[in-house]
Design a protein around this nucleic acid. Structure first.
Length: 609
RNA sequence: GGCCCCGUCGUCUAGCGGCUAGGACGCAACCCUUUCAAGGUUGAGGUGCGGGUUCGAUUCCCGCCGGGGUCACCA
């Protein structure tokens, strides 16, 4: 971003304007993050850069306060804060947001009188008019056009003319006749200047007279956006490329609008100051790895597929039985299976019941799966943007934090091509982020995560403390690509010493029956442990060294010694190195496990091999 | 279908007329190794096609093809 795009005297304002109809989508997170990065970068350059959030809740049916709160919360979790917008108090007690520029409120539903004032002004200037067709009529017309393979465009009524106030229509509207308000699209072509895509031209007549106020009295997105961006001083509109096609509408609106002396009163009249056209930057879209659009419906698809497989495989299951079991409406579930609906609630209920993994689409999903915010923001910032910098070895720099992003972000380096969301690479980033954590930081992250998402695991983890806990973190951290991985990786340590379940296949493989090599190894190992000083004062490496020397002296393969011990200690053939395992379990815990294994496995038959 | 955007390894990308087209994830092989991870080394893998412009095109122009977005009283 160069200085030519900005005016040093005015604040430079970007905004993220989510509609609160669900969780924060990863695509939305990226948009918000890059808007934030731009504003931050401006600050670093000495400008008054500001990142603003506005909640676009003009869809009365779908919006909810919980969604708005959830989106704000996800943003804060990612480490993205806003200068202007709804306030949020973080778990740490900090307050984000506020209205220091005095341009709020930041919920559009609370700005209706403003929209109405500008709407009325536009109508009086002959730039907008009430229209009385019903949705049904319009839909029928659209269908008819489609049947004739024609593109439908709303035909401007013959009594409507640009610049002429239509008193008859206004009177009908005033008398209470249901209507929408449409904008009189000017007869000129429109060129959108985009900081990413360059000049994009739209010919005259391409855009029809679109609706700016719905029948319910709420403004449409197009209208509210233009009014708010002007009144809130937004200078840089950065959004996803799917909005590019909307931009000529916004530009046309900006061309027709001037500021009112009083924003809430049409009769105050215009002060003659035209609306600004902000700088636009349309960012590339984000897709699934298969090229389909990333959408919440992917969850329904995944659940449906798994459920169908289940039903064909297990004939004792029926859809109706499942429905009553899950307290779902049988008809709705049947529709769901038949792909007649994509209910997220049903998908989640079914997934929870049958342990079906649902694709992660929203930031919330990734939180739940045990991703670190740092890994997500790092990965996301590489989708459609790159710093274009090399490290000392001449390799591309691609591991960085939000601070680096804000330092190096520029719109110039935004790409034009859509990016596919590669979950495998994200996972790799997350594994690296976890690996980079100090052991005690890992402990904190894991504990916080577990408290929120896996209370049972959190409860079990609580019983381990002190040196044993430190050993557990040290041993398991490199084996976790997500925090959730710890649930499995740490399982061996969280089971009571007298309740270890010895996996029969592992036992057989380890030759643990009396007289076999494994049994002997474990017995000797036990004897060695009893000679060790008090718990916690031994070096894990000394345990490993003993195993090695024992194997050498007895001319055994390491696997013949270590695996039986591993099974005896953990019940399975997979665990961290045995020195670490003993550190975690402690001497007495280890002895309990070894004894129990020795006695329960001695009578087992050898493997049938 | 109309309009609009896009086109470098499988994926994310570097490149802004001259490079053996670089990196990362993934993949393969090898090394390390008591299991599982991790780590190390090496390797395979790309400029969609056709025309121009130019001494020279990944890069500039045109066409084609391919992909995508959008065509709501959703945002």
């Amino acid at each position: 971003m160069t200085a030519q795009h900005v005016n040093a005297a005015q604040p430079i304002v970007t905004r993220f304007a989510p509609s609160p109809t669900g969780h924060l989508h990863v695509g939305g997170a990226r948009t918000a993050m890059l808007c934030w990065a731009f504003a931050q970068n401006m600050k670093r350059q000495g400008f008054d850069g500001r990142f603003m959030i506005r909640i676009e809740d003009t869809d009365q049916a779908r919006s909810s306060d919980e969604s708005a709160k959830g989106i704000l919360d996800d943003l804060a979790w990612l480490g993205i804060t806003w200068d202007d917008g709804p306030t949020l108090t973080t778990p740490a007690g900090a307050t984000i947001g506020g209205d220091s520029r005095n341009v709020g409120p930041y919920f559009q539903a609370r700005r209706i009188d403003i929209y109405n004032a500008y709407l009325e002004h536009l109508v009086r200037c002959g730039r907008a008019y009430p229209a009385f067709e019903t949705s049904d009529q319009l839909n029928a017309d659209r269908k008819a056009a489609e049947a004739k393979k024609q593109t439908y465009k709303y035909p401007r009524p013959s009594d409507v003319q640009l610049g002429i106030f239509n008193e008859q229509r206004w009177a009908r509207a005033k008398s209470g006749e249901p209507h929408v308000i449409r904008f009189v699209m000017p007869p000129t072509g429109i060129t959108v200047t985009d900081l990413v895509l360059g000049e994009v031209k739209f010919a005259a007549g391409e855009v029809d007279d679109f609706v700016i106020r719905k029948q319910d009295g709420f403004p449409t997105y197009h209208f509210a956006v233009v009014i708010d961006d002007e009144l809130m001083g937004v200078t840089h509109v950065m959004r996803a490329q799917e909005h590019l096609i909307n931009t000529p509408k916004h530009v046309a609106l900006q061309g027709a609008l001037t500021r009112l002396k009083n924003d809430r009163d049409a009769t105050s009249g215009s002060n003659g100051q035209p609306f600004r056209v902000p700088q636009y930057a349309h960012m590339p879209l984000i897709f699934n790895i298969d090229g389909t659009k990333m959408s919440k419906r992917d969850k329904a698809k995944a659940a449906r597929k798994a459920l169908k497989d289940l039903l064909t495989k297990d004939k004792t299951l029926t859809a109706d039985a499942i429905a009553s079991d899950l307290k779902l409406d049988a008809k709705l579930l049947a529709d769901f299976i038949a792909a007649e609906n994509d209910s997220l609630d049903i998908a989640q209920a079914v997934a929870a019941k049958f342990n079906i993994p649902l694709p992660e689409i929203e930031v919330w999903d990734y939180r739940k799966s045990g991703y670190l915010p740092h890994a997500i923001t790092n990965f996301l910032s590489l989708l459609g943007w790159s710093p274009g910098l090399k490290d000392e070895q001449g390799k591309d720099i691609e591991k960085f934090d939000l601070s680096f992003l804000s330092q190096h972000f520029s719109i110039d380096r935004l790409g034009k091509t859509a990016a596919k969301f590669d979950r495998v690479k994200l996972l790799s980033f997350n594994a690296d982020a976890i690996a980079a954590l100090a052991d005690d930081a890992f402990d904190r992250e894991l504990t916080n995560w577990a408290n929120q998402w896996e209370p049972t695991f959190a409860q079990r983890l609580k019983h381990i403390d002190g040196q044993r806990r430190a050993a557990l973190m040290r041993a398991c951290k490199p084996r976790c690509k997500t925090l959730r991985d710890a649930v499995k990786v740490m399982d061996f340590a969280l089971t009571r010493d007298d309740q270890v379940a010895f996996d029969p296949a592992a036992v057989a493989k380890a030759n643990l029956f009396a007289g076999a090599t494994g049994h002997t190894s474990v017995t000797k190992f036990r004897a060695m442990l009893t000679e060790l000083p008090a718990a916690g004062t031994f070096e894990p490496t000394s345990i490993d060294a003993w195993i090695k020397s024992y194997a050498e002296t007895n001319q055994l393969k390491m696997g013949d010694v270590a695996q039986p011990i591993r099974v005896a200690l953990t019940g399975t053939t997979v665990s961290p190195p045995l020195g670490d395992v003993v550190s975690v379990l402690g001497i007495s815990g280890s002895l309990t496990r070894l004894d129990r294994c020795l006695s329960t496995c001695r009578t087992l038959a050898p493997a049938s091999a």
